[in-house]
């Protein structure tokens, strides 16, 4: 049963040290506020699962929270490489997390298998790619009907899925609009689900019948955090903060400037800071 609660309480209740956590959102609706709260609460030894680690995991990696990384594309979108992730892989700073690397097709299929309650995902993939040499989770199965050899990867079943969405109803149903990414699958694959939202409305009676809505009984906690996807965007609410992605390339280039930025912008502030960050980017409200 969904509870509408504060972000601090939700993270304290749902995310524990050592958990496998998927913060999802494909370029759009990235749950940054929830990640910052998790950083403030000092979670450790996390398995961080995410198709596109992006700035959100660059920050968590740099803060030494990751025991293992599961991903398929680790870049700063539109800018270049992720410098904290590079530092951890190339130099072991601040630690050296285990890496499980996939392709997008594999991870999308693996989330879907998790949502469908299957042990593994089967798809046509990785043909000729060296990824199968460096990732022992990439196996093959033979189709019992045609004999075709297909790729198989384990289903993703996170302890916790964390997403950001446009709105929730008072009952806790959640609406995701625009680029919906892999959030529905991540939510349904996870044991516990934390959703931050731009707004809470009375009900969803006026919505189009085919929209992506996650029923309240699939969600553990809903936390209103306006602006909570910054510097990514929330379709219909505010634009992507492209300048912040460019700035991150400079901030993250150096360990001291990274730690200074994290103290000033994450450790010493709360979730309410996000509303102010998106004010100049708002397209509505």
């Amino acid at each position: 049963m969904t509870c509408i609660m504060s972000l601090g309480d939700a993270v304290a209740e749902l995310i524990a040290d050592g958990n496998a956590v998927a913060f999802e959102g494909f370029t759009h609706l990235i749950p940054m506020a929830a990640a910052h709260e998790t950083i403030r609460q000092g979670r450790r030894d996390l398995t961080l699962i995410r198709m596109t680690p992006d700035i959100i995991y660059d920050q968590m990696i740099g803060m030494g929270m990751a025991r293992k990384l599961v991903f398929s594309f680790a870049g700063n979108p539109g800018v270049g490489l992720l410098r904290r992730l590079r530092d951890t892989v190339e130099n072991g700073w601040p630690n050296r997390p285990e890496i499980e690397e996939h392709s997008h097709a594999a991870m999308a299929n693996a989330y879907e298998a998790g949502a469908a309650g299957l042990p593994c995902a089967i798809f046509r993939g990785y043909l000729g790619s060296d990824l199968r040499k460096v990732n022992p989770s990439i196996r093959t199965v033979t189709c019992p009907f045609t004999g075709e050899i297909l790729a198989a990867v384990p289903a993703i079943r996170p302890d916790v899925a964390v997403i950001h969405a446009q709105k929730a109803s008072r009952r806790g149903d959640v609406l995701v609009e625009g680029i919906v990414g892999v959030q529905k699958e991540a939510v349904l694959a996870a044991k516990r689900v934390l959703v931050t939202v731009e707004e809470v409305v009375d009900d969803f009676d006026d919505l189009h019948p085919n929209l992506c809505v996650l029923p309240h009984w699939t969600i553990s906690a809903v936390c209103p955090v306006p602006g909570g996807a910054h510097p990514s965007y929330a379709h219909g609410h505010y634009r992507r903060d492209n300048a912040a992605y460019l700035e991150w390339d400079k901030v993250s280039a150096d360990r001291d400037s990274f730690l200074g930025w994290m103290k000033a912008n994450v450790l010493d502030v709360g979730p309410e800071a996000f509303a102010e960050r998106v004010r100049p980017l708002r397209t509505k409200g």
């Binding site: 870049g75 490489l81 992720l82 190339e90 097709a105 000729g128």
Partner: peptide, 18 residues
């Protein structure tokens, strides 16, 4: 395992290519 430069990775490309 010990790259000189860690690049972003495959993303969609391995299956786009096939």
């Amino acid at each position: 395992t010990h790259p000189k430069v860690r690049l972003p990775g495959g993303g969609g490309a391995p299956e786009i290519a096939s």
